[in-house]
Simulated scan of single mutants.
Amino acid sequence: MRVSRTKAAENRERILDVATRLFRERGIDGIGVADLMKSAGLTHGGFYGHFKSKDDLVAQACGRAVQKMRDNWIKVLDQTTGDPVHALADTYLAAKHRDNAGRGCTIAALGSEIARQSTAVRHIVTEELKPFIDYLSAIVQGSSASLRRERAITLYASLVGAIVIARAVDDAAFSNETLHAVANGIRSKSTPRPPKGGKKRIAIRTPRVAKP
């Protein structure tokens, strides 16, 4: 029986939602199409009505995950009343984020795997990540645009690296120490801004990425 366009769109969204979570939890190669579709409550045969291949799904799921990550963090930072860099360090480097890879930062969960994926996957992730670096460049301190961008990239790399290490080690105390050390390092290098004065909202361009 043919499904309506509305239902088909709902099914596609469900597959993408499940894929973004399971890829981050188990890894891209840690789950196949059949199990993924089963987790979405759909039949294996219906997969190719929505995606050309698993690589197509990986590209779209990873791009979607990075976009949602970016939008969520920007929302958190836009709502903070204090220094946004401090807020990012405190929230990103929390035990809750470390322990919930399926709902956390895609780069921290899948960065090393994405590096081994196709050009299409890497391109869509790149284009979705760039606006977040642009956003960070606008909230960090620096006397020039190039210095602020350098600091933004350093900030994000420090955050991602801390989560990767904290998840990798089997020593809980060392894991917590890593999160606290990097958070303290970020806070010590960030000059707090005045809490009031009408913080300017930063417009972020949403990239238009062609489907692979």
Rank of each mutant, 00 (worst) to 15 (best):
R2E: 13
R2L: 14
R208V: 11
G198I: 09
A168V: 00
A172V: 15
S39N: 12
T191P: 09
M37D: 02
V3K: 14
V125D: 04
H50M: 05
R2N: 09
K75L: 10
H180L: 14
Y92C: 00
I74C: 02
I186Y: 01
M69E: 08
A157Y: 11
R208M: 12
H44S: 15
N184T: 15
A115E: 13
R193M: 10
S144H: 09
I163N: 00
R201A: 14
A172Q: 14
T6C: 00
A210Y: 09
D99E: 12
H97P: 00
Y48Q: 08
E177C: 08
Q79H: 12
A34F: 05
G198Y: 05
P84H: 09
H180R: 15
R151P: 00
S112T: 15
P207H: 10
I139K: 04
T43H: 14
R21G: 00
T119G: 13
R2T: 14
S188W: 08
D29T: 08
I139L: 04
L16E: 07
H44E: 15
I163W: 01
E177P: 00
K68I: 11
Q141S: 11
F132M: 03
R26W: 00
Q141K: 10
V182M: 02
L16K: 06
D134M: 10
A120M: 09
R187Y: 05
D99N: 11
V140Y: 06
S4H: 08
E177Y: 13
D35Y: 06
S53L: 10
A115S: 13
V182Y: 01
I28D: 01
R116C: 09
F47K: 03
S188T: 13
R167Q: 05
A61I: 02
A101C: 07
L88D: 07
A89L: 05
I163A: 06
G46P: 02
K75R: 14
G32I: 06
D83I: 01
V66W: 04
P212Y: 10
A203M: 05
I31T: 06
A89D: 03
G41R: 01
L136H: 03
A40W: 02
N72R: 12
L155M: 08
D35N: 11
S39M: 01
D90R: 12
A168N: 12
K189S: 13
V33K: 02
G45C: 10
T106V: 09
S175R: 08
K52R: 15
Y135M: 11
I202A: 04
R201G: 07
